[in-house]
């Protein structure tokens, strides 16, 4: 009965305050969408790290005709130099860092280049002798790139040692910046949402002060008096959270997995089911913020 009563009060509160409730829904919707976007970006970064860190290699580029680094002073790499580098890479002392070593000749390099830039007119102007031959080194621990760099960067015949991870790191930096921006916007919007909930609950408590006054006099418990108001804010915020989840799911499903995945088949995108992992977090965040905000407001504006 008391439950039914609280629900009835809640219903009348929602109806009476419809415009304000809708604005809470929309503001929490937008803010939680930004929170979720930041979360998805982080998930995407982790996903790509997991995917690429297994595949990224340290490339030890060997000298070609026009290399400028000091270790290439003697001109293009010689067969002896190449053999020696390979021997060191495959030696016992490096086996704890290096898992595999592959040699890529200039012709193979051209082949990869042509694959990668298949649609670009640049392909026709590049020839094999412009591309350096290289050793592709897979590390046991990708973080230990410095070991290879120190060992080989000044070895005669080696032009540069390059860590593919660096390219990825740069990409991840951009994505981190984007997610920080999303989080900042989310923070501002969430603050708006909290203040809006407080104002709405305050108005709602004011418009029903006659009822609450009587409830107080006839001995209704604090919970029965306050719960309809708190639920009003929480339900609006949870609806906002559900809308945010729906939007993020649609973005992941149609934009990421639909359009982008087709454009970049090589890239591992997060799946739309991962959005659903984020959903309880978003909805919970919205609900808790609204609940706390309305409780604090009630403590100030509703005597019980």
């Amino acid at each position: 009965m008391r439950f039914a009563f609280v629900l009835g009060e809640l219903g009348s509160g929602l109806r009476r305050n419809l415009a304000m409730v809708i604005s809470i829904v929309l503001v929490t919707f937008i803010s939680l969408t930004f929170v979720g976007a930041a979360g998805l970006l982080q998930l995407q970064i982790n996903q790509m790290k997991g995917y690429w860190y297994d595949r990224v290699q340290v490339a030890v580029f060997l000298c070609v005709d026009n290399s400028t680094s000091p270790s290439c002073a003697t001109g293009p790499v010689t067969d002896d130099q190449r053999d020696e580098i390979q021997t060191i890479l495959e030696s016992e002392s490096f086996s704890e860092y290096v898992s595999t070593v592959e040699y890529e000749s200039q012709d193979e390099a051209l082949g990869h280049f042509q694959d990668q830039f298949a649609n670009s007119p640049i392909v026709d102007s590049v020839t094999a002798d412009q591309l350096p031959e290289s050793f592709r080194v897979n590390l046991v621990d990708p973080e230990k790139y410095e070991v290879i760099n120190e060992a080989f960067s000044s070895t005669p015949g080696v032009d540069v040692v390059s860590d593919q991870r660096e390219l990825l790191e740069r990409l991840f930096t951009y994505m981190n910046v984007a997610s920080a921006i999303a989080l900042t916007i989310a923070g501002v919007m969430l603050l708006c949402a909290v203040l809006l909930v407080a104002t709405t609950i305050r108005l709602s408590a004011f418009s029903r002060r006659r009822e609450t006054g009587i409830m107080r006099l006839v001995g209704a418990s604090k919970a029965v008096i306050q719960l309809p108001f708190v639920l009003e804010g929480v339900i609006a915020a949870v609806v906002g959270g559900l809308l945010a989840t729906g939007t993020l799911w649609a973005v992941a499903h149609f934009a990421l997995n639909g359009v982008l995945a087709e454009m970049y088949p090589e890239t591992a995108f997060i799946s739309s089911t991962e959005v659903l992992l984020l959903a309880p977090l978003l909805i919970g965040l919205g609900g808790v913020l609204a609940g706390v905000s309305s409780l604090l407001t009630l403590r100030r504006y509703l005597r019980v």
Binding site: R2, R210, V218
Partner: peptide
């Protein structure tokens, strides 16, 4: 407060509820 009934000069009824509902309200809330 459940053990004390109170009546005021200005009645303090809920204008949008019937007589029955006004009285029932005091029982519903507890």
């Amino acid at each position: 407060r459940r053990g004390i009934g109170v009546v005021f000069q200005d009645f303090r009824l809920l204008p949008n509820k019937t007589v029955f509902a006004n009285v029932a309200f005091a029982m519903q809330v507890i």
